[in-house]
Write a protein that binds this DNA or RNA. Sequence first.
DNA 1: TTGTCTTATGGGCAAATACTCACACAATCC
DNA 2: GGATTGTGTGAGTATTTGCCCATAAGACAA
Lengths: 318, 318
Amino acid sequence: MSKPEITTSRLDDAARAGWLYYVAGNTQDEIAAKLGISRQSAQRMVSLAVSEGLVKVRLDHPIAHCLDLAAQLKKRFDLKMVEVVPTDPGSTSTTLGVADAAADEMTRWLKSEAPIVLGIGTGRTLKAAIERLSPIECPQHKVVSLTGNISPDGSAAYYNVIFNIADKIKARSFPMPLPVIASSPEERELLHAQAMIRPVLELSAQANVAFLGIGDLEDDAPLFVDGFISRDELLALRRAGAVCEIVGRAFDRNGVPIEGLTNDRVASAHIPSRETATVIAIAMGAKKLPGIVAAIKGSLINGLITDEQTAEALLRPA
Amino acid sequence: MSKPEITTSRLDDAARAGWLYYVAGNTQDEIAAKLGISRQSAQRMVSLAVSEGLVKVRLDHPIAHCLDLAAQLKKRFDLKMVEVVPTDPGSTSTTLGVADAAADEMTRWLKSEAPIVLGIGTGRTLKAAIERLSPIECPQHKVVSLTGNISPDGSAAYYNVIFNIADKIKARSFPMPLPVIASSPEERELLHAQAMIRPVLELSAQANVAFLGIGDLEDDAPLFVDGFISRDELLALRRAGAVCEIVGRAFDRNGVPIEGLTNDRVASAHIPSRETATVIAIAMGAKKLPGIVAAIKGSLINGLITDEQTAEALLRPA
DNA sequence: TTGTCTTATGGGCAAATACTCACACAATCC
DNA sequence: GGATTGTGTGAGTATTTGCCCATAAGACAA
């Protein structure tokens, strides 16, 4: 992995160029003239500003259709919050749009003066959301990971995002130095009894809000691709009726946890209580649809951030 | 202003197009295809979204605030250029940051192929700026001092920076072998009539750009500390309403020159015409605030390099 | 110091975008 | 009824932008 190592002064210039371009509406030629650089360099500065996430574009218009879908979903499934973003018909990305919406929703929570406990799951969607989060200082809050952050190979799991978010918001973070799935139920108990782990588990139960991804269990299930479970285990789960996985735990199409199998060894915290916490799933796409349906049916979540297409599919008479 | 009366559905489409463009990163062609409209219409949708303020761009960088302030100052006070640098909250230095910014601005001017005449004032801030100037060969330009460079003790004044800059940029320099303040109005006339001085004064009037410091007139006014005026003269100036000094000349809070007193004996050149030249003051800090206000009110300058804090103070409703 | 490697710069070009114009259609006005 | 005005559309065109590549500049080890 190559480290870009971008100096502060470089980012400063990039921000300048980005400001001149997006806020002041200059062309790249004008920026080049004003900054005394070539147009090509100006272009590079602007694109650097974009790629470094300095430039945030927000659309301040609730598209009627999306609002409508959100309202319907909220009513039909008795959810606390629903956010529906437009779908890009051509794109196959499972993060596009929802990641930004999730980042916005997080920001809304983080702006709270009162200290909150923020639970964080894992997954690609969540990672993308955190990346889009604007830095905001909120040392009053606590961020707690709901899943272990140790990869099967012993490294910190790539899609565990607790460190990224803690860094961005300058809050105290409580990672869970565990594998996602222990080697045996006994080992899980042993691990959970550890002095370092117990407080984290307790804190996770007190979360005011949690953001979770929903993992599918298709052939390229994230849990399998990232090496947390074997192919055989994946197939066994599917045979047992599992359709999705949340913080490592597998559920059937009604949101009921699968008995036995890997679920006996999942070391993650439990999903915070839907009575006391807002538990928001961030998920979109046909692949995740069964999982979203399951999560809703089983009342595993009471909040949802998804896209138009998925929202429509959810509302379609089953 | 005519209200176009845009229907909701129209704005909805615009938002959708804007979303596809800015968030999903589609080209207008793709948007056109997806929404089943012509490319031109897609373009119109996107630009409608922008002009209706649906698209909000935010820059997540400290610099963004500075640029905002600069744009406001420029507009409010009708200045040709304004540069605002971030304030380091801890530091009390009056040169930090602005010196670098001034050096950068000078460099931009010096990069010009066409010969320019660069007027230079005096003062600690300017000296710091010159120190930070990167050496650059530009023999096509001329650097002219706007103030005398002879100290009361006969030596070259320490804070006269013409020699430093001329040396750095390898341009022809035109120092002014005069005291800043002559001993009498008559002596001033005599000095100005000298064959060596006259061309320098004439050149100073032709300056394309000038960089000036603004001196306060507090108890530790640079003019007094450096021995150019006596304590009594300082007090007399203050009694006469003077709040600042530029190239040795004192001005009241509206930027009007003080009548009589030391001003009758100031041997400096006049500030170049704001019609033909860009006259840039480099100043920051609470102490200099009244002076900056005066310089702006009196249109003594049409460019400013300052810091965030000072910029905010300048914009605060008086 | 020299050679080599990496990184940054500016020229050129194709793609993408903004703008202008002419026209079609509809509602309104005379 | 016909003219007028406003609004939307598509075509053509100038400008702007993104990207590739050759080259220059800087870093670093020998």
